[in-house]
């Protein structure tokens, strides 16, 4: 086809990616709005290896070309992710939008990427030479900058199979549907034997990248809920100090207040 390559297998896709100057095309919902001139697309929407959801002993593995609608219908996809998926845009966009595209667009507003960051998700990258696995929060290098080489494709998103049962998810958009996140928040909580083992908090759409501060989270790890309550003020203060937010469709001050309220609400939800 003129100015396009349709790959029938991952191998073929990687070969084209390595040998030609192409833009990977998954769902099209971001790319077609940009409407870049003079580019060639590598169509990934029919690559079978990218269309599957699989489960191994540790991870739910979601293919990069799996659409949001397909994931919503899949029993293996964690509830937290589904909650975020169900609030993305509207059916026609969810039918087109994919996990790989959402991540590959590099936006801090990407609703699935927020969940992946909060869930300690990983992204699998492949090139004709081989593959590598990167933590999703390390995959974002800066505003619209990703740790993705010119010859690589996103192939899978890995979400932990366990540990995502207790969470908070909040999305602030301008309306009830067709809403781009103005602030989004995902928190994951876990405790074992009375001690907090996970208290991940991730903030989307408020800065150049999705924000997560593991060093602040560490303040509460290993503590009992009661102990955590005592540390709550310091913990919240640490976030308030650290978070430098940008303005977008709403002001930075608003974003900050909402983030702090939602973080506080997350702690409260789990008794802290």
């Amino acid at each position: 086809m003129v100015n396009g390559y349709a790959a029938a297998s991952l191998r073929e896709a990687l070969e084209i990616r390595a040998s030609r100057d192409v833009v990977p095309y998954a769902g099209g919902t971001d790319l077609m709005i940009e409407n870049r001139k003079g580019v060639r697309y590598l169509f990934l929407n029919k690559v079978p290896e990218l269309k599957a959801v699989a489960v191994d002993d540790r991870y739910v593995r979601i293919g990069a070309a799996v659409t949001f609608t397909e994931a919503l219908a899949c029993p293996d996809v964690p509830r937290l992710m589904k909650e975020a998926l169900s609030r993305i845009a509207a059916p026609a966009i969810r039918n087109a939008g994919t996990f790989g595209g959402n991540l590959g667009n590099g936006s801090a507003k990407a609703d699935t990427a927020l969940i992946e960051v909060a869930a300690d998700g990983k992204v699998c990258l492949a090139s004709a030479e081989g593959g590598r696995v990167v933590d999703v929060d390390k995959f974002y290098l800066g505003r619209k900058k990703l740790d993705l080489a010119d010859n690589e494709l996103i192939t899978e998103i890995l979400l932990p199979k366990k540990g995502l049962e207790q969470y908070s998810y909040e999305k602030v958009g301008g309306r009830e549907a067709l809403a781009i996140s103005r602030v989004s928040f995902a928190g994951v909580f876990a405790a074992e034997n009375g001690k907090i083992t996970n208290i991940a908090a991730a903030f989307g759409a408020v800065a150049d990248t999705i924000l997560r501060y593991k060093d602040i989270e560490a303040m509460l790890l290993g503590k009992t809920v009661q102990e955590a309550k005592g540390l709550k003020a310091d913990y919240l203060n640490a976030y308030a100090q650290r978070m430098t937010l940008t303005r977008g469709r709403v002001s930075a001050e608003y974003r900050k207040r909402v983030c702090m309220n939602l973080l506080n609400g997350f702690l409260t939800k789990f008794g802290i």
Binding site: A90, G174, R175, E176, A177, L178, A179, I180, R249
Partner: peptide, 11 residues
């Protein structure tokens, strides 16, 4: 239409 929002069927 992404920066000037009008009500959808859900609002």
């Amino acid at each position: 239409f992404s920066d000037y929002l009008i009500p959808t069927a859900k609002d």
